[in-house]
Design a protein around this nucleic acid. Sequence first.
DNA 1: GACCTATTTGGCATGATGACCAAATAACCA
DNA 2: TGGTTATTTGGTCATCATGCCAAATAGGTC
Lengths: 97, 97
Amino acid sequence: MTDRYNYMASVMKALAHPTRLFIVEKLNEQTCNVSELTRMVKADISTVSKHLTILKQAGIIAAEKLNNQMIYRLLCPCVLDMYQCVIKIKDTEEKND
Amino acid sequence: MTDRYNYMASVMKALAHPTRLFIVEKLNEQTCNVSELTRMVKADISTVSKHLTILKQAGIIAAEKLNNQMIYRLLCPCVLDMYQCVIKIKDTEEKND
DNA sequence: GACCTATTTGGCATGATGACCAAATAACCA
DNA sequence: TGGTTATTTGGTCATCATGCCAAATAGGTC
C-alpha cells in the first residue's frame, strides 16, 4: 500500500525538475549523448550526467555505450502524456484567474 | 522556453510525494475534508493541511468552505493517467531485472 | 605508455522539504 | 461571551536536493 505510493513518488520526483523534463522531451525526439544534452541545457556536464543518472534509476530512460560515449534514449514515451495533463492544469488555472 | 519547464516541474513536484499521491487518488473517488484525509494518511493534521495547500497552489485540487470545514476536490482527474504511466515504467523495469 | 575525448564520481556549500508542536484563526453552538 | 471543532500558520530542526569544481574512470589513437 504505502510501498506503491513511495514508488510512484520516486518516479514523479525524478521528473520534477525543469532540466530533466527538457531532457525527457528531447530524448523523445532523438537519442543523445551527454555532451549533446549538456550543450542544449547549458549546465556543467557533471550536473547533466547526474540528472541522467536520476532519470535512469527511475526507469524513465536507458543508456547504451557506443565507443567512449553513452547514448541515452527514452524508455517510456508515456511520460509525455503527463506533459499534456500539466498543460491542461495550467489552462484550468488561467480560466479561474 | 525555460518558463514552460519551470512551470511543469512545479506541478510535478507537487505530485512527487507519497502522501500527496494518496490524497489525489482519494479525492478522485470522493471529496473530503481535512480531518477525513488526516485519519486516512495517519499524520499530523497540520502536515496534511500543508500537503493540501501545495496541491491547491499547483492547481491540482480546489477547496470550498462548508460551514467550519474545508471540502477538497480533485480538479484535474487527468493526473490519474500519470499513475498508469508510472505503473508501465515499473513493469518495464521488472522485465529488465 | 602518453594523450585526448567523454563521462562519472566525490566533496562541499547552499537552499528547499517535510514533520511535528504550539499558537492563531474561523465558524458554530450553548 | 465562553467553549468546541476544524483548519491554517509559524517556528524549529533534520534531511534531502542541486550546482559547481576537481579528480577519477573508460575508450580510442598515436
